[in-house]
């Protein structure tokens, strides 16, 4: 479903992605882990066409998207739902308006059906009675859940989660993990989860890939990653300051 081939992306002298190769099957939940600043967010922003790669190819459902026009990219992006690290809710719109944003503009659904979908998406993320609130009236965890409701209301085929558990308490973080699992079971979506939280990664992933120095250096099931002998991956998953990773 998604195939990334030799992807490169630089910001001036900073060569962030240095030939990423990745293949993600339909319906799979793939966790991409790595240190802060390793280029995980750049990878998903490139994947959804928010950033243009310098080199390489990205295939989504058989379509190579790096060469598409802006207009064609807008259509491809509607296959994706993206949960931003800081939720990125539209702060001039209410919770309800945020969630219904894509539905209202890019579907032919009736107002009643849109209303139903909004309610359903908010219930799925465990929120009730917040429809009329503005984003600044919500806690960090609630914002994140509204962001998720907005991403799933459109019923995308692929959901990208950028650090879903960052900035929220462990209980809420686990509730988000359960939601990621529920999305896969109930909607059958393909998920890409960017995180450095290994507890979360082991729980939600079908497979885990580690991004290090701009490349995917290991891929495996949660069990395979736990038992890996790769010293870089070991150092990362055990959270040790001692080991081959020196830049932190």
């Amino acid at each position: 479903m998604i195939r990334i081939v030799e992807l490169h992306k630089s910001f001036r002298e900073n060569h962030v992605l240095r030939g990423v190769n990745l293949e993600i099957a339909k319906g799979e939940t793939r966790v991409i882990c790595g240190q802060s600043g390793s280029g995980k967010s750049v990878l998903i922003k490139t994947l959804i066409g928010l950033m243009k790669p310098d080199r390489g190819q990205i295939w989504v459902d058989g379509v190579e998207i790096t060469s598409l026009s802006e207009e064609e990219l807008f259509k491809i992006r509607r296959k994706f739902g993206l949960l931003f690290q800081n939720a990125a809710l539209f702060d001039s719109l209410t919770v309800e308006e945020n969630v219904r944003f894509g539905l209202e503009r890019y579907t032919n659904l009736s107002p009643a059906e849109i209303q139903r979908r909004v309610k359903e998406a908010l219930e799925l993320v465990g929120l009730r009675g917040v429809e009329k609130l503005m984003p600044h009236e919500l806690s960090g965890g609630m914002k994140k859940r509204v962001g998720l409701a907005r991403a799933i209301a459109y019923r995308p085929q692929i959901i990208l989660y950028d650090e879903p558990s960052t900035g929220i308490d462990p209980i809420r973080a686990d509730a988000i993990n359960d939601l990621i699992i529920a999305m896969k079971k109930e909607i059958g979506v393909t998920s890409i989860v960017i995180t450095h939280d290994m507890v979360s990664a082991y729980k939600v992933a079908d497979r885990i890939s580690m991004l290090y120095q701009g490349k995917i250096i290991a891929t495996g099931t949660p069990d395979e990653i736990r038992k890996t002998v790769n010293p870089i991956v070991r150092q990362f998953i055990t959270g040790s300051a001692v080991g081959p990773i020196k830049e932190y």
């Binding site: 922003k45 807008f74 800081n86 990125a88 809710l89 894509g102 890019y106």
Partner: peptide, 21 residues
């Protein structure tokens, strides 16, 4: 100021991600 704030808080990226121009 409004659009700039939307830009730095990733709201513009959120628009793109929802397929909105």
């Amino acid at each position: 100021a409004e659009i700039g704030t939307m830009k730095i808080t990733e709201q513009i990226d959120a628009l793109f991600s929802l397929g909105a121009d």
